[in-house]
Amino acid sequence: MWLLRLLTAAGLAVDAYVHFDLAHAYDPVGTAVSQGTLFRAQAAAAVFAAVLVLVSGRNRWAWAFAFLVAASALGAVLLYRYVDVGSLGPLPNMHEPEWYPQKTASAVAEAVATLGAAIGFVTAGRHRTPSGRP
Results as ranks from 00 to 15, higher is better:
A50I: 06
A10E: 05
R5C: 09
S72H: 10
S56E: 11
A124W: 04
L7Q: 05
Y100K: 04
A70D: 00
A41V: 12
L38R: 10
A62G: 05
F67I: 05
R40V: 02
H95K: 06
A41F: 07
D27I: 02
V29E: 01
A113R: 03
H127I: 13
S56C: 05
Y17H: 09
R81A: 05
G132E: 12
P28E: 10
V122M: 08
G89M: 07
H95S: 09
Q35G: 02
L88C: 10
V108Y: 07
A50C: 08
V112N: 00
A76D: 05
S56T: 10
V33H: 05
H24P: 00
L6F: 08
Q35P: 03
R128E: 12
V51I: 14
A46E: 07
G11D: 06
R128L: 14
F48S: 08
V51R: 07
R60G: 06
A46F: 04
N59A: 01
F67A: 05
L88D: 06
Q42Y: 10
S34F: 00
P28H: 11
L91R: 02
G86I: 07
A117D: 10
A118F: 06
A124K: 03
V122H: 07
L38I: 15
A43G: 06
K103H: 11
G57E: 00
A109E: 00
F48P: 04
K103F: 14
L74E: 07
A118M: 03
W99D: 13
K103M: 13
Y100W: 07
A70C: 08
V47R: 08
A25E: 14
D15L: 10
W63E: 05
W63G: 02
V33G: 06
V53K: 01
S72I: 10
W61S: 11
P130T: 15
V108R: 06
R126P: 09
P130E: 14
F65V: 11
F67G: 04
A49P: 11
T129M: 15
R128I: 11
A16L: 12
L88K: 08
A46G: 07
V122P: 03
P130K: 14
G86D: 10
G11A: 12
L4V: 10
R133F: 11
L52I: 01
G11Y: 04
L74I: 02
Y80C: 13
R81E: 11
G30I: 08
H19A: 13
T104G: 09
T129K: 15
F39K: 00
T31W: 04
F65P: 00
W2P: 08
L91I: 05
T8K: 09
